[in-house]
């Protein structure tokens, strides 16, 4: 399939919502944006007054033909770009966006397989887009999310995910602090957690894993140990260790 060349667009910030203490949802109005599939990302470029530029990749939380593009950015303490996007960028400000990018880590409503989504931290963003696409398409394909977080306060889009629990249910997992009354102690995802909270290999699922690099490595290896075929596991690594 040949696509038109991917170009740069100007996006002006039309809406900004704080998601947690360290993350913010940013919606840009992007004239000419061709629309995007669930799971794709953009390159976002900032230019300083002396012409210096910095570019980073961000997954797209929104899906479909709309020219409003929503991103969700988590602040990394020493970061160059993310603190600016989370703390400083104001409604009316412009950034440059290139995309939509990526043709592999995408979910299309035509995919017949049941879908297991596994997110670590802000890795939930492209997976949230997949649950949105599932809802928009009124898909009847089973889709469920396992969402691993440090603490309950770190959840992005909790209300939205909970509202969708009858069609795309979420299993919450906490690695540092659990909510009051939670039966499972805080801790890393174990092979048992993976076994009990994900679709088993016998159901032939397509599994999408997204998050920090170390999280993706551990989960992908765990899935293979459970008997999943490597080519049924699609991964996106956000960086870090």
């Amino acid at each position: 399939m040949r696509r038109p060349p991917v170009g740069w667009f100007t996006g002006s910030l039309v809406r900004a919502t704080s998601l947690t203490d360290s993350a913010r949802s940013l919606t840009f109005s992007v004239p000419g944006w061709p629309g995007n599939l669930a799971g794709q990302h953009v390159d976002l470029r900032l230019t300083a007054s002396d012409g210096y530029q910095a570019t980073r990749s961000y997954s797209i939380a929104s899906v479909g033909p709309d020219t409003d593009v929503e991103l969700a950015v988590e602040r990394l303490p020493d970061g160059e770009v993310s603190p600016f996007l989370v703390d400083d960028l104001e409604v009316g400000d412009s950034v440059e966006l290139r995309g939509p990018l990526g043709g592999w880590f995408v979910w299309r409503p035509e995919h017949p397989e049941p879908v297991q989504l596994i997110a670590g931290g802000s890795g939930v963003v492209p997976l949230l887009a997949m649950t949105r696409a599932h809802t928009d398409a009124r898909s009847t394909v089973p889709m469920q999310l396992l969402y691993s977080l440090r603490t309950p306060e770190d959840a992005l889009y909790r209300d939205e995910l909970q509202q969708r629990s009858s069609t795309t249910p979420t299993t919450w997992h906490y690695t540092r602090t659990v909510p009051p009354g939670w039966t499972r102690a805080a801790g890393r995802l174990t092979p048992d957690d993976l076994r009990s909270a994900t679709l088993p290999p016998e159901r032939g699922p397509l599994t999408f894993v997204c998050g920090p690099t170390g999280f993706v490595e551990t989960v992908a290896r765990g899935l293979i140990d459970l008997g999943h075929q490597p080519d049924s596991i699609r991964t996106e690594r956000f960086g870090g260790i």
């Binding site: 592999w104 490595e217 992908a220 293979i224 490597p230 699609r234 991964t235 690594r237």
Partner: peptide, 8 residues
């Protein structure tokens, strides 16, 4: 950083 389409 690591960029891969699937498991290692």
């Amino acid at each position: 950083p690591v960029l891969s389409a699937g498991p290692t």
